[in-house]
Design a protein around this nucleic acid. Structure first.
Lengths: 177, 177
DNA sequence: TTTTAATGTAATCTC
DNA sequence: GAGATTACATTAAT
């Protein structure tokens, strides 16, 4: 299945990383050391030119706010649209912001939302797009959030079942009821 | 949750499956009324046992292990373990297990593997079978994995194109530079 | 520390 | 093979 990299491979890997554009989000099989030379030097980061821009629509409103603020703070001769456009079209601005914004802010579901999601989950682990849309409307959430919630909920269920399965198997073999 | 030894019959097996694994891997069928009770409860969906058995060769060895272990654990007479073994040997159980064992274990590519795949991808989005076979040999991967990797990589590229297009269109409407 | 929302991508399914 | 979807491994926020 997978190769256990030899020492040679590991060395080659490190050298390659400094030569070739890196690749993001590689998950090694073995435990990833927190601090490798590559990491410290930033050589394991993806090259700017080959990076695919993440889709973060939620960052846009934040970006707009920042730009509005910079407009009101700025005393330049530019008008609003000019300045805003300058900001919006500056990749470095967006990138810097993305660095801060990073991932979507964690959604904090209310108790009621969770209760309803759970009650649906109890009868259907895989609500279709229509049900999800309906839920989104009822709970004032994006459909995306609903979808992710169900995905994570299924994963959680599977985990818990793996655990109980493990316990059952242990019971059989240990004969220690 | 407790399942009595004597309840390991067909019905119990199905119940256990839904209890232990609890995952109905069914997908919504299109062209149905939007919100029926059945729909929301997922009752209008195809029964899992009428589905065509998926081809999962990697699951077979796992299943074999489980059966061997169970058999060796069985002592004499009709005790719990033996009944368990009997069940594990039945076709329906096999099918159920196969289904729930589910997919091929996720392959974790090494960084070097990804780097090489990426470098090939840059010059050829559609490597033929010969290139794929060569890559498979060089990278110690199945050709299947290579094939899937390129399929997913193409999808990723397409996504990124759609997204940057979206951003460009938006930009144009905010203000053209 | 634990739980879980969010992410990226390998695998699967339908066409 | 494309497109859509799901599972899984991991990260990070609470």
């Amino acid at each position: 299945m997978s190769i256990m990299p030899t020492t040679f491979n590991k060395i080659a890997e490190i050298n390659m990383a400094s030569l070739v554009y890196g690749v993001k989000e590689v998950r090694p099989i073995d435990g990833k050391p927190k601090f490798t030379i590559d990491r410290i030097l930033g050589l394991d980061q993806e090259d700017q030119h080959t990076r695919i821009k993440p889709y973060r629509p939620w960052a846009d409103s934040l970006l707009a706010q920042v730009c509005v603020i910079s407009k009101s703070a700025g005393a330049s001769g530019m008008n609003y649209n000019e300045e805003r456009t300058t900001q919006l079209s500056t990749d470095s601005c967006r990138q810097t912001l993305n660095w801060y914004i990073g991932r979507r802010p964690r959604t904090a579901f209310t108790r009621l939302q969770i209760e309803i999601l759970e009650s649906i989950f109890q009868v259907n682990y895989y609500p279709g797009i229509d049900v999800r849309e309906e839920l989104a409307k009822q709970l004032h959430l994006d459909e995306d959030r609903i979808q992710i919630w169900f995905q994570n909920r299924r994963a959680k269920l599977k985990r818990s079942h793996r655990e109980s399965q493990f316990l059952m198997v242990k019971k059989v073999f240990v004969k220690d009821d």
